[in-house]
Write a protein that binds this DNA or RNA. Structure first.
Lengths: 266, 266
DNA sequence: TGTTCTTACCGTCTTCTGATGTTATGTTAT
DNA sequence: ATAACATAACATCAGAAGACGGTAAGAACA
């Protein structure tokens, strides 16, 4: 059973998808041998090894002679490939909704989230615009656009997130102040936003301090989970945007605690 | 006559090469119409317009109804595509020579020069390594490598250079101190290094302050030219590396003024 | 030393991006 | 209003990058 990660969308190249599936498989089984994976996925040993090398580079698994073992789940969850595979249509809808908040001439900050990335595709029509981000895929996309001032937030590259972070990044953020911030997190409780990784929290907190209007992008999958670090209370955000698939009984508690929640139509 | 930019090497995609040639053509003629270019280069109007759009995005030409005109030569010279086309083999040789200065574990800073980019291809075998750079092509290459800590220097994106600059970048540089710096300039006199653009000078100066050992990479074409801004005296560099094609009578003056010059074998 | 697992190298194949031209629509000048 | 020019949209095509497997060489373990 070729353990499918999400059933849902497919925006990924074949190897990337298989790698995400292998990652899931490894996480599920704790530790497996290369040959197990050969059987499970019907590819050659060579390919399995290449996939595992890549996953190790991203920090998702640990290789040793005879097989691989999973790293803490937190790493897996923040793995870019995995995230890209998740709730793509919802993220697009949320992005379309968020777009309405942006006027030409504004300065916008984006964090290293796939939700924010969906937003980038809509920028072309809202020029001129100043965009600051530490997310490499976003940076790459933005370099090709005219009439957009791109402010790259540098820092230490993380292969897991495909973004820049650490203290250098936090400092770069602190030197700025943008009109808008669009960011996402890995988990949302009725009162707070959460994230697994301290390093990321560091940068996101700095971003929250460096923007006038803060917007949290939340697809419904986030609402039923938690994570280690409490990033900020939801009331720190001016708007929380959720997708239409979010059950009403999950939205109401947020509002009860004072959050401004908007629902994006698909 | 299809004014060839450099005659020399060809490491560029067809459109990029044609764009460089068009740029040269425009610079030469001051201003031309789209139809002129259609004839001169034997492509469709559409393609010409696309090329011109791209060149305008890079700041090399200015479009108006009925044609295009050239921007100051300085911009043309610092155009990335143009530089990539120039003295590729020499740069590779210089890079191989420079490589010997790097030991595993060191921290290295690179500026936004194609000379430095040639060096990146050699990093894979000198791990572990910490590399800081503001040059997007270099950043992209480095993200794919293992055992290299990549420290991206953020800042304002410049399409002309395909790199990040401005004050944010200078600040990011100043927060660091690396073992080595490899950089290049657009012109070298017997006593000084020069560059056309103030913004770039700003960043390069900061880099010079932020490294212990400074290395200047100079292919022979640089030695017979000058540029607006005096970047620094050559004695500020610990080593100046030139390629083998450099005439002896151009090298000697540098040495006479106290520079340490090394010649890279092809 | 033998076995098992891993890596390096190479050739083939596929896939996918990106370049290009054509036609149609829009825009600016005269 | 009409002509010249510019852009947009679309379909096709080519080239290049990447994926993949096989074999052979190498490293770790027992």
């Amino acid at each position: 059973m070729t353990s499918d990660v999400d059933g849902d969308t497919t925006e990924l190249s074949r190897p990337a998808r298989r790698q995400a599936e292998i990652a899931a498989y490894v996480v599920e089984h704790g530790s497996v041998s290369a040959n197990d994976l050969v059987e499970a996925f019907g590819v050659s040993v060579m390919t399995v090894h290449r996939d595992l090398d890549e996953l190790e580079r991203q920090g998702v698994v640990r290789k040793y002679r005879g097989g691989v073992s999973a790293q803490p789940t937190s790493v897996f969850e923040s793995n870019v490939a995995y995230r890209l595979n998740t709730a793509q249509t919802e993220k697009t809808a949320i992005a379309r909704h968020a777009r309405a908040m942006i006027e030409p001439g504004m300065s916008v900050m984006l964090d290293d989230s796939t939700s924010a990335l969906a937003l980038v595709d809509l920028f072309e029509d809202i020029t001129p615009l100043t965009v600051a981000t530490n997310f490499l895929p976003a940076i790459t996309k933005l370099t090709a656009l005219r009439d957009i001032t791109l402010l790259a937030l540098g820092g230490i590259y993380s292969a897991t997130h495909d973004s820049f972070g650490g203290m250098p990044c936090a400092e770069a953020v602190e030197a700025l102040h943008t009109d808008l911030l669009f960011c996402s997190v890995s988990a949302v409780s009725p009162t707070h936003a959460f994230h697994q990784e301290e390093e990321i929290v560091l940068v996101k907190r700095a971003m929250l301090r460096s923007a006038k209007t803060k917007v949290l992008l939340v697809d419904h999958a986030k609402l039923q989970r938690t994570a280690l670090h409490r990033l900020a209370p939801l009331t720190d955000f001016d708007v929380v945007i959720v997708d239409e698939k979010t059950p009403q009984d999950l939205i109401q508690p947020l509002r009860d605690h004072g959050a401004t929640v908007e629902v994006a139509k698909l």
